[in-house]
Design a protein around this nucleic acid. Structure first.
Lengths: 217, 217
DNA sequence: ACATGTGAATCCTTTCACAGCA
DNA sequence: TGCTGTGAAAGGATTCACATGT
């Protein structure tokens, strides 16, 4: 691994870039050509100093006294996120959630392409979901290789998630989005992002309880 | 505000408590009565020092030289998260994702109860999803009040999310789980957690691009 | 005059390392 | 001996405040 100037972007900043991109897209849709750190920050739900600091890690895109060009800033952020090249993904586990994710329309317009759907159940394999045939998970390695899948969305039951993840990694995938309620054990060079609906609700419950305890006083 | 011993729990710690709880449930299912900070940390995907530090904000539950009792630690964490009392939630927006969330089985076993489903489309209102009748979003305030809903899951299209959030807040809800790709503007005392699938994929794309840039060197 | 870009200060989080106790 | 619980140190992230450039 070589040290790169681009690699100096902090993780917390990377996590916010999608918000900025979304806000910029909205502004573009509204026909706004120019924006400011405070307007963009407001729409992204962060502070303006934070936004400027975040952008400073990518470079210097604004004009002092004026602001940012909406379109060109969006292009810079897209480039920083690696959204120039197409990313081909497979969804594994076509249950309720897998269905919903397959039908999610936000992929293609943003450089993501659903290249494969995989499931273990004979009832589902062979059917079409969102215009794509569901393949048997037994053929996982082959499908991933042949269709040049580089990212996998895991929507399987928790019990089998670790095993599937191992196959997926063995097939060469290095980016996984995990919806299963399991802490996946993967090699260091594999990036896993987990979305846990149950966990999010529990965090909200904590705040509800804290509020109740405070109000009692 | 009175005794803040509970309120001193850092946000980062709260965010990890659900992982610990999940790992403890797994251990209990396997019939393991006793565990250690390193075993529990391993299963939760964190470091053992971090786990011990996190638990120290809640109290002191282990036995030095021995470890933690699986069942009683789980009970303590549940209590800290406010999972003793039932939380009644409404899902707003019964599209692909709303369907999937309504059918998600992880709620009831964890103290959450789906008390209402709401949608705007005449095609959906009146149908049954997951055994619950879908009500008209026009009746939102009434439904929330009558069914004592305290949390809302927003699964609407982005365009209407802000408007719905405002109604939901006006109806007295203070905890929102937002799946719409929008930064909701809400009063300070309302807690919003956002899940953004598109954003997660973009973060993965960033790592893929960083890897590609590094390998080239 | 005005908004960006950025060092410096502050705050929060993680990690370390060991004292304390079964 | 072995593992917890916790001060202290280290490392990140956020916020401040202003110099900088248009």
């Amino acid at each position: 691994m070589a040290e790169l100037s681009e690699n100096a972007v902090p993780a917390a900043t990377v996590g916010r870039l999608p918000y900025y991109l979304r806000a910029l897209r909205d502004l573009a849709d509204e026909g706004v050509p120019l924006t400011s750190s405070s307007e963009l920050a407001e729409r992204s739900g962060v502070g303006s100093a934070q936004l400027r600091k975040d952008l400073s890690f990518l470079g210097s895109f604004g004009t002092r006294g004026v602001g940012y060009d909406v379109q060109s800033l969006a292009d810079y952020i897209k480039a920083a996120l690696g959204l120039e090249s197409e990313h081909r993904l497979a969804i594994v586990g076509i249950g309720n959630l897998g269905h919903a994710l397959a039908n999610y329309s936000g992929y293609t317009q943003r450089g993501f392409q659903v290249a494969a759907l995989l499931d273990a159940s004979p009832d589902v394999v062979g059917t079409e979901v969102a215009g794509i045939r569901v393949d048997d998970i037994a053929d996982l390695t082959q499908v991933i290789t042949q269709r040049r899948v580089s990212m996998v969305v895991l929507a399987t039951p928790g019990g089998v998630a670790q095993g599937v993840a191992e196959q997926v990694v063995a097939a060469g995938v290095r980016e996984i989005l995990n919806f299963a309620p399991t802490a996946l054990q993967v090699p260091d060079d594999v990036v896993v992002r987990s979305v846990d609906v149950g966990g999010e609700l529990q965090i909200l419950a904590f705040h509800a309880a804290a509020r109740a305890a405070g109000a009692q006083d």
